[in-house]
Design a protein around this nucleic acid. Structure first.
Length: 476
DNA sequence: ATGTAC
């Protein structure tokens, strides 16, 4: 991206002023080097978002931003219904409530390393993954509606995990406002057998070691220390969320035409929050969020059982679970006034700061854990929300390394089998369902996670707590 | 991301 005409407002924040049809400015949180590596499309897309009706303060791009559908991945935008604010499917994405859950194991690397092959095999065998994969849970329509209304709480009621875990899941495991009647029959049929499955693409189940502690107090509050092993999973709502997104792409398009909204990009179809279509989309999206929360709750329980089948002394427990593809109703202070806003985060993680009532009591003094999934060959991060984050980008931070190369381009550069051997030689064990999928996910196709975490930290969006290093990874 | 193509 060209950076010469961007207005630099701090070391790690650049602004595109509100010109022409933009209602607000666009702000890109990244250092100059990251921005220079970003696609020009990010700038175009985030400027388009700034044109949407009822947008508040600015459209934001996180340091891991890259070209997405309508909105960039790594995009944040908040809308006020009292000013004609909209809800947009492109602002959430196809993988509704994709997110990360991190589990502590209570074991140091030395105790896991000798059994790593068995651990990885157990995880691979017990957690269904891959395109079209199905789980063991069989549901009828009524059962699925209970999932879509109950989220992780439903999964706990079914015996997957303990009630005490729910406090450490965003929304306490269940998002309000789900409307199962707004979820199409097609979406429900597709989702029926997929609860407890990982999926494909960038989704994974990883064994990681706490590589470096940046903030000892926060790490201690989060119950992690250098050398300890974590079990981390990244996945979303599978086909049900994808179908909801597909259905409402059409529905919101119709609404936008009916209401004569002039849109900068047909991928930015949206409807007023207070319109029938907008409300139905919100209800369907919330249902898909609950599907994802249930999915991660079940997978976590399966993964914990798999891990303990090899290492029974492990005490597997949740650190946190947070989504990065959502729209949520939150209260934020804007120019001194509290306002109720519909905050879209697409490839962006909620990052509530210290003292926020929605941060679990055990973490409240240090801020919400922000789980950032990097790549299978480099690393991941645990960050924490800051006091400044609410005032910067509606309490949002990055969500991953962010692609620097498209999947097709990655396929021209890497081969799955060779990549797997290379990683093995570096002590990282990969169990994949698809060699092609591995090549698409080559670490070299992503930005440098350390650069992204540093920029996020320097921008004040979230602060670094710990760097995680992968030792084994199950990929779909 | 995705019954990788309605």
């Amino acid at each position: 991206m060209q950076t010469s005409d961007l207005h630099q407002i701090s070391e790690s924040c650049f602004e595109i002023p509100a010109v022409g049809l933009m209602n607000v400015p666009a702000r890109l949180f990244a250092d100059r080097a990251l921005l220079e590596g970003m696609d020009e499309k990010v700038r175009e897309q985030i400027s388009n978002v700034a044109r949407l009706p009822g947008i508040v303060t600015a459209a934001f791009a996180m340091p891991d931003a890259h070209w997405g559908y309508g909105f960039p991945i790594g995009g944040v935008a908040a809308f006020d219904p009292r000013q004609g604010g909209v809800i947009s499917m492109g602002g959430i994405g196809y993988d509704i409530s994709c997110g990360v859950r991190a589990l502590r194991t209570g074991l140091p690397e030395e105790e896991v390393r000798p059994r790593l092959e068995e651990v990885a095999t157990a995880l691979f065998e017990r957690v269904p993954a891959g395109i079209g994969s199905e789980g063991k849970i069989r549901l009828d329509r009524r059962g699925l509606d209970e999932v879509l209304l109950g989220g992780a709480r439903w999964a706990v009621e079914q015996g997957y995990g303990e009630p005490g875990e729910l406090e450490f899941v965003e929304e306490r495991g269940r998002m309000e406002g789900a409307d199962t009647g707004a979820v199409s029959d097609t979406a429900k049929s597709r989702g029926l057998n997929q609860i407890g499955t990982l999926g494909s693409g960038n989704h994974y189940l990883e064994v990681q070691v706490v590589d470096q502690v940046h903030d000892a107090d926060a790490a201690s509050a989060f119950g992690i220390a250098a050398g300890e092993v974590l079990l981390t999973l990244h996945c979303g709502s599978r086909a049900i969320g994808h179908q909801v997104a597909t259905d409402y792409q059409r529905e919101l398009g119709k609404a936008a035409r009916r209401l004569g909204l002039s849109l900068p990009d047909r991928e930015l179809v949206c409807a007023p929050i207070d319109s029938p279509e907008g409300r139905r989309y919100y209800g369907a999206m919330a249902a898909a969020v609950n599907g994802a929360l249930a999915n991660r709750q079940v997978i976590a329980a399966l993964a914990a059982r798999a891990f303990r089948s090899v290492l029974p002394e492990a005490r597997v427990g949740i650190l946190y679970d947070v989504s990065h593809n959502t729209c949520k109703v939150e209260e934020h202070e804007v120019d001194g006034a509290r306002r109720r806003l519909w905050v879209h985060r697409k490839g962006a993680t909620r990052a509530f700061g210290p003292g926020h009532p929605d941060v679990p009591a055990a973490y409240r003094e240090v801020g919400q854990p922000v789980l950032v999934g990097g790549t299978m060959g480099t690393g991941s991060y645990v960050l924490a929300g800051t006091s400044a984050s609410a005032g910067l980008a509606f309490a949002s931070a990055c969500h991953g390394a962010g692609r620097s190369m498209s999947r097709n381009e990655a396929l021209r550069h890497w081969r799955g089998d060779r990549l797997q051997r290379e990683l093995a030689s570096r002590g990282i064990l990969i169990k994949g369902h698809s060699l092609r999928g591995l090549a698409e996910e080559a670490p070299g196709a992503y930005k440098d996670i350390d650069d992204v975490a540093r920029a996020t930290h320097e921008a004040g969006l979230a602060r670094r707590v710990a760097r995680l290093r992968p030792i084994a990874c199950v990929k779909g």
